[in-house]
Simulated assay, not measured.
Amino acid sequence: MTSVRPRHDTINAVFDGVYLALASNMLLVVGCLPLVLLAFTTDATQSWPLYAIAAPLCAPGLCGVFGVMSAYSAGRSTTGLRTFGRTWLATARPAMLWAAAATALLVVLGVDARALWGHRAGALALPVLATLTVLTVATALLGLVAIAERPAAPLRDVARACLYLAVRRWYLTAGSLLVLALLAQLVTARPALGLGLAAAPLLYVVWANSHFALRPALDPPTVAPQTT
């Protein structure tokens, strides 16, 4: 009997994980529906202003998926829809403001890079703009994970902590960005495979890396009580 019980628990854990991954994929598509519709109906190179407008609207959905992953990691919770809805409502305003600020900065950096491309000044400015772009994406990603965990945190504090930790733990940041780039390539090449199967496992890696990088901010060290 002792050997049957662990095997039964393992099978349940596998089915719970598969169910939650499929549910997360569905919730991701629903939460990011504006971008999904644009991706299937427009050319990104020609319609990038529409993408810039739609991106902040999808931020609460991504926070919702991160909330589902956090709840599952903490207690094997499989109430994905309820957790997603609760996180979406709690993070809607800060997540959209955060994503709007990051998107605006990325648009400015992209326009500057386009204007300097092929000019002599670009040889010096373009590497700086590329570095700022990577830092912006990394900080924005960490910020969405932080907002999913602490929706009431002031965005100024989120920006300061996430920028510092994105640089301080650059190896985790680099891993998350590489996985995110892989997901973007997969969704572009095989949308059904990317959104239907691969999104949740790859985003879980991104969430786990980001959550670990944010531990100093999410779980500040406790001060031991002084003894007299």
Rank of each mutant, 00 (worst) to 15 (best):
G85D: 11
A102V: 11
I53K: 05
R93K: 15
C162N: 03
P127Y: 12
I147P: 00
L165K: 01
I147W: 01
I147S: 00
A55S: 12
S70I: 10
A104H: 08
A146L: 14
L105C: 11
L141I: 06
F66I: 07
A153N: 06
A90S: 11
L141E: 02
R93T: 15
L129C: 06
V65K: 01
L177Q: 04
F66L: 10
S176L: 04
L97E: 11
D112V: 13
D157L: 13
P94Q: 10
A121W: 15
V111S: 08
R150E: 13
F66E: 02
S47H: 11
C162Y: 01
L116K: 09
G75Q: 15
V68K: 01
Y164H: 14
R93F: 13
W88M: 11
A71M: 10
L163G: 09
T136F: 03
A174Y: 04
L129G: 01
G61E: 03
T78H: 05
A59Q: 07
A59G: 09
L57G: 02
A140L: 08
R82S: 15
A59C: 13
E149P: 01
L57E: 05
L81G: 04
R82A: 15
L163H: 10
A125R: 11
T173P: 00
A92F: 15
P154G: 04
L126K: 12
V158R: 00
T87I: 07
Y72A: 09
L180E: 05
F66V: 05
R93P: 04
V65F: 02
L163M: 13
V179R: 06
L81D: 09
